[in-house]
């Protein structure tokens, strides 16, 4: 899971699935337990883990998450943010 070169316009669901895989891999948890509405805290991520997740998402989706937009609570929040930045930063 290094880059989203095959799909330039991933759907929210595809983004969500990719992020869930990243979280499952990082936290060593069953992906089936991860729901979009799960908070990152519930999934065991602390602030540093969240930075790491965002870092990996930036690499994968070729986006740059500004420092003032990392205040996110749920996995859904991350997915929405990623989708918005993909569209914005493609311009």
């Amino acid at each position: 899971m290094t880059s989203a070169t095959d799909n330039q316009n991933p759907s929210l669901d595809e983004i969500s699935q990719t992020l869930a895989k990243m979280v499952a891999d990082k936290m060593d948890i069953d992906i089936a337990t991860i729901k979009p509405e799960s908070t990152l805290e519930e999934l065991g991520l602390d602030s540093l883990d969240t930075f790491d997740l965002i870092f990996n998402a930036e690499d994968y989706f070729h986006i740059k998450v500004p420092n003032d937009q990392v205040n996110i609570s749920t996995l859904q929040d991350v997915s929405t943010l990623v989708q918005r930045l993909i569209i914005e930063q493609k311009k």
Binding site: D25, K26, M27, D28, G44, L48, D49
Partner: peptide
Amino acid sequence: FSKHAYSM
């Protein structure tokens, strides 16, 4: 260790 623990 768990992967989460040792990867950091």
